[in-house]
Simulated assay, not measured.
Amino acid sequence: MRLFLFPISTRRTLIYCQRLNVTTSEQQTLLDKGTSRAAALWSSWEKKESGWQKKVVDYGNKALQRIPYEEWGLKSIPPLSARRKEEELSGKEKVEVSFPGSLIPEATITDLLRKLGTERQSLHKKRMMWSFVGMPISAPIALIPVIPNLPFFYLVYRAWSHWRALSGSKHIEFLLDNKLLTIQPSKILDDIYASGESPFIPTPALEQGSTTTSGSEAEKMLIHKSTGKKIAEVLKVPELEMELDRAVWQVEKAISAEAELKREKKDLDGVNEESKKEK
C-alpha cells in the first residue's frame, strides 16, 4: 500500500492511497464487490443517451463533484480489517508515504498525516448518523410507483461514504501510532511540480497584493488540472486524474470565494472610514 501526499495549494493537501497487489476477486470483501457492481451500474447509466437514468447520472455527478476532496482521499484508504492489521504489524505489507520533498519537509510528514487523518473524524461521525436517521424517513417514497427512491439511496451512499472515510482515518491513526510508515520523498513528484504552470491566483487576491488581512501569505494554487493528468500518467494511476481534478476545482473555488469576501470586506471598511471622516 502506498500513501501519496499531493499539495493542492500552499495550505491544502490531498491524501490518496494506492492499493498494490490487489489482483484477484478473492481478496475483495463483499462490500468491495458491492461497490464495484454499483460503479458498473452507474457507468452503464452514463452511457445512455436519454431517459431518467441519464438524468439521475447527470445530477448525481454534480452532487458527487461537491463532496469534499478530503473525504474522497480518506475513502481511498482501505478499512483496517483483522487480516490487514496482522499483515502490517508483522511487516508483511509495507506502507510507503510518497510526497514532493521540495514542498513538504520530511520532518512534518507524520504531523501532516495525523492532521489529515483526524481533523474530520467528528464531522464524518455526525453526518453518518444523520444519514442513518434520514433513511427510514425517506423509505416510504418507495411506495410511489415508477419513481425510484433516490433520496433513500443517496442517504445510503452518504452513510457508506462517511463510514468509509472514517475507517480510512482510523487506519492512518493505526499506522502512525505503531510507526509502520516508510517515508520516501519522490523526485518524480518534485519534477512534476517544478515543471507546472504558474500558481493560480484569483483576481481579487491580485488586487489586494500577496498578503492577507492578517499579514500572512495569501493562499496560492500549486497544481492545475493539466498537472493532475500528468501526475496520473507518470505514476500510472489513472483514477488519480479525477481525484486531483476534483480537488483542484474545489480549492480554486474556495480561494476565489475567500478572496472575494476579503475584497468586499475591504470595500466595506473603506466606506465606513469615509463615513466617519464626513461626520
Rank of each mutant, 00 (worst) to 15 (best):
73 G>V: 04
106 E>I: 11
73 G>D: 03
116 L>Y: 05
107 A>F: 00
84 R>Q: 13
79 P>W: 05
106 E>L: 10
115 K>M: 13
97 V>A: 04
116 L>W: 06
89 L>G: 03
103 L>M: 14
99 F>Q: 00
106 E>C: 03
96 E>L: 13
81 S>W: 04
110 T>Y: 02
73 G>A: 04
87 E>L: 14
88 E>R: 15
82 A>Y: 04
70 E>I: 02
80 L>T: 04
108 T>P: 00
109 I>D: 03
77 I>L: 08
75 K>I: 06
79 P>T: 07
74 L>M: 15
78 P>H: 02
90 S>W: 00
90 S>L: 06
76 S>G: 09
78 P>Q: 03
113 L>M: 11
111 D>P: 02
110 T>Q: 09
118 T>S: 15
104 I>N: 10
117 G>A: 11
110 T>K: 13
70 E>L: 09
81 S>C: 03
75 K>W: 01
89 L>R: 08
111 D>T: 11
89 L>I: 07
98 S>M: 12
116 L>T: 02
112 L>P: 02
76 S>I: 07
71 E>W: 10
117 G>E: 09
113 L>T: 02
75 K>E: 13
91 G>V: 05
116 L>K: 07
85 K>H: 02
101 G>L: 06
118 T>M: 10
71 E>M: 15
75 K>T: 10
77 I>Y: 05
72 W>G: 09
84 R>W: 06
96 E>D: 13
86 E>D: 14
73 G>W: 09
81 S>Y: 08
80 L>M: 13
95 V>G: 01
104 I>Q: 08
112 L>N: 02
76 S>A: 14
98 S>H: 13
104 I>Y: 09
105 P>C: 06
76 S>H: 10
117 G>N: 03
111 D>I: 01
72 W>H: 12
104 I>T: 03
72 W>T: 01
85 K>A: 07
76 S>P: 06
87 E>A: 14
104 I>S: 05
86 E>K: 15
70 E>Q: 15
106 E>N: 03
107 A>T: 11
107 A>D: 14
83 R>A: 15
87 E>M: 11
112 L>V: 08
113 L>K: 04
71 E>V: 14
107 A>S: 14
82 A>G: 00
110 T>H: 05
82 A>V: 09
114 R>A: 04
102 S>Q: 14
94 K>A: 14
111 D>K: 13
108 T>D: 14
100 P>T: 01
85 K>S: 12
93 E>N: 13
117 G>L: 10
89 L>C: 00
109 I>P: 05
88 E>Q: 15
114 R>Y: 12
101 G>A: 05
86 E>A: 15
118 T>Q: 11
86 E>N: 06
92 K>S: 07
110 T>E: 11
104 I>D: 07
83 R>F: 02
93 E>I: 10
106 E>V: 11
110 T>M: 00
112 L>T: 10
111 D>S: 15
70 E>F: 11
75 K>H: 00
115 K>Q: 13
88 E>C: 07
79 P>M: 05
81 S>H: 07
116 L>M: 12
87 E>I: 00
101 G>N: 08
100 P>A: 04
83 R>H: 11
74 L>A: 13
74 L>E: 06
80 L>S: 05
77 I>T: 05
90 S>H: 04
94 K>H: 13
70 E>H: 15
71 E>A: 11
100 P>G: 07
75 K>P: 00
104 I>H: 07
90 S>P: 00
110 T>A: 10
112 L>R: 12
